[in-house]
Nucleic acid binder design. Sequence first.
DNA 1: GCCAACGTTGGC
DNA 2: GCCAACGTTGGC
Length: 148
Amino acid sequence: MKSEPDVYSIQDLKRDKTAMWEGCRNYQVRNMLRDSMQINDLAFFYHSNAKPSGIVGIMKIVSHAYPDPTQFEKESEYYDEKSSRENPRWYVRDVEFVEEFSDTITLQDMREIPELNEMLVLRKGQRLSITPVSPEEWKSVIGLDHKK
DNA sequence: GCCAACGTTGGC
DNA sequence: GCCAACGTTGGC
């Protein structure tokens, strides 16, 4: 799950303990948030537009999907006039801090190991802010963390 | 700041 | 339903 650290970083989540993953405005991402995730699933926290970009830690999904309140707030940058409380377009999950890696697992780190060749987040032109991770990919990333 | 690679919008 | 124009993401 991507976030720009200037907007919300793993350090922010560590401080807050839990957070609402707000502001996703892409239908594929919405569907994953709403339908694919389960409570107690783990997720990598990814810093995008960062120096360097990469995976910085682990968090846990701790709520069911519920409507993103920011879509109804006129003063919010995430306001969506086409959405309604009766038929909300956008959803959020609550996430809980689990772990901050001692070093960022950078995109370069991940591209160097063949096990992660197929990892969706590494694919060219891939812009979704949430992408699935296979169990094998999860283990490989954890392995990279242990090496650092 | 550039720009490739997408997603979205809206005229037709 | 097509597709051109436009907007956004995000690595570099």
